[in-house]
Write a protein that binds this DNA or RNA. Structure first.
Lengths: 335, 335
DNA sequence: GTGAAAGCGCTAACAG
DNA sequence: CTGTTAGCGCTTTCAC
């Protein structure tokens, strides 16, 4: 392993000078800098970040906590985060909590020493725990807001507006919202959002159950949707929408003929399925990038008050699971 | 931040003793050990792994390189790797190369100092580069074999046997293999495997193009499949199979009525689509866990010759995209 | 503008 | 069994 001393010796300077060439290049004389850098390259010298971190207190690492990497919604976010982190020479530790809220805080603790900050993506822990996590390590929240912690979220209210506008324009008068996990921050946002949107249009809304945010959750929702007599639903996320779509078709219910479906997320699957799912596309890589930006800003001036919350807007993608309501369906739904 | 000295002072012992309590508990007297550990817990002391690494030369981190986290095949592997790594108190740096072979080696270099070893998952680099990577950091390969590097792969030959057995039993006489990236190690394995399998059954095989291992790649493959006149195909992976399925249906070709499809991987989507894709399920989390085991074994005794290559077997999952050949289809295919 | 010295938190000889 | 000493690779005062 080639150390800073090897470079120093080869360049005929002191280790301090070599160090400065990397950390504050401008304060070392151009000529020596060139020489040192050239020799460093030639020797394939790479600063040991752990050693550097020991003294600077900065590791150059970021931690990323997320509930389930196998949920197709998350990989794109991870990619966005990684991309942006690498631009600033940060590495990222990814930790999958397997949807278990009880391990989250412990993981933050065990990672704290090795990272400069944590990005908590859709964390399931309670607000008080979140506040504690932020105490342990500088944290930024993704897809959630809590206290005055920095966060990047999406505008769920606007998203619901778009969904309801679309459905109302198609002629739907009675729609449903298939909700996800009871404790999901986004879920609550979407629920209150759709209530408002629906009121503005003077159409009626049914809340349908709480279901796991998975394909199987959507399958389980089918019965409730049918019983409610709605002509269209917005689902908590695409996975539920896809499961619902599949279960409905299995029962001979036509989509969008009998029931329209709008999902949220725009996961890759939604475009691949037939009929392709109409959905609200939430910016994924951008969210990730923004989260890193926020993190870096926080790290740069820990005390100063940075804009703590960024909000991104979703985009409605009309595909094949939405259409005007079927008159027959209306008959099934006596007002 | 509480250091080893704080604990030492509070316990009335030297830092070395505290250190030993964590690294070699058995050599310190039971009574003192208890006391030290209790105080450490009470103070919420956690060893600084970077500082430890500086002297032991072991970081407690593993690096994981993979081509594309958004490919639904990889998340499960990552989960398996993480799970097993955490059991041994290892953290893992995940790096997504965006399918760019040219950056792989560089990433290995830049990560080398911060990890004890690298897990290279479906690496796209050339064998010589792979050898070089292994020089830089202890490496284990996943889904690829090269030289005598430790690796965990799947038995592609057996997988192709299973696929062809299934298709032959159904009565297919002329099948196709839709191949993926030209330089994929697994792809070559599967190709030679299916040639053998087909020969054993006395049925004929068409190789159809090289396509990107994506849904769109599968869409692009549809024309070639139709032109070839085969009554069934095995695709390089599920994503291609799914794209093909979709494109075929768009053209009014019935699956499995007119053409049967067998994929490889068993990604979540394959079970969710209608008709659900018959596929060869490759063990994903187990592969990941095994890779970590191998890594740890290598790290424990770097010199000794460990069993370098583990091979896992796939399991055929018969779903709805395979059926006996349609007589009409046979007409389209004059022998 | 550059070097010498000190020390980040920890472990590894080496004594005792 | 435990304490002392030295030093991992690096950055950072502080002199010069």
């Amino acid at each position: 392993m080639v150390t800073i001393r090897d470079v120093a010796k080869a360049a005929g300077v002191s280790p301090s000078t070599v160090s400065r060439c990397f950390t504050q290049p401008e304060i070392v004389e151009a000529a020596t800098r060139e020489r040192v850098l050239r020799i460093a390259t030639h020797l394939d010298y790479r600063p040991n970040r752990a050693a550097r971190g020991l003294i600077t207190g900065r590791t150059g690492n970021l931690g990323l906590l997320l509930p389930d990497l196998a949920n197709p919604f998350f990989p794109s976010i991870v990619k966005g985060i990684q991309h942006q982190a690498h631009l600033s020479e940060y590495q990222v530790f990814v930790v999958d909590t397997n949807e278990d809220p009880t391990v989250e805080l412990g993981l933050v603790r065990s990672l704290a020493k090795q990272v400069d900050g944590m990005i908590l993506c859709s964390p399931r822990m309670r607000p008080a725990e979140l506040a504690e996590a932020a105490t342990i390590s500088p944290s930024v929240l993704v897809h959630r807001r809590a206290g005055s912690l920095p966060s990047v979220t999406i505008d769920n209210g606007d998203a619901m507006d778009q969904a309801v506008d679309h459905l109302a324009a198609l002629g739907h008068q009675h729609i449903g919202f298939v909700s996800g996990p009871r404790r999901s921050w986004s879920g609550r946002q979407r629920l209150t959002g759709i209530h408002k949107a629906v009121a503005a249009h003077g159409i009626s809304l049914d809340e349908i159950g709480h279901f796991a945010p998975t394909f199987d959750g959507g399958v389980a929702a089918a019965e409730g949707v049918l019983l409610s007599g709605v002509s269209a639903v917005v689902t908590y996320n695409d996975l539920i929408g896809l499961g619902l779509l599949s279960a409905l078709r299995d029962r001979g219910v036509d989509v969008p003929g009998d029931i329209s479906i709008v999902g949220v997320d725009d996961i890759p699957m939604s475009a691949m399925v037939q009929p392709a799912l109409t959905t609200l596309s939430v910016p994924k890589e951008p969210s990730g990038r923004l989260a890193v930006d926020l993190m870096l800003r926080v790290l740069d001036r820990p005390s100063s008050r940075v804009p703590p919350a960024e909000s991104l807007t979703c985009q409605l993608i009309v595909r094949q699971t939405t259409a005007p309501p079927n008159p027959r369906a209306a008959k099934r739904t006596p007002a």
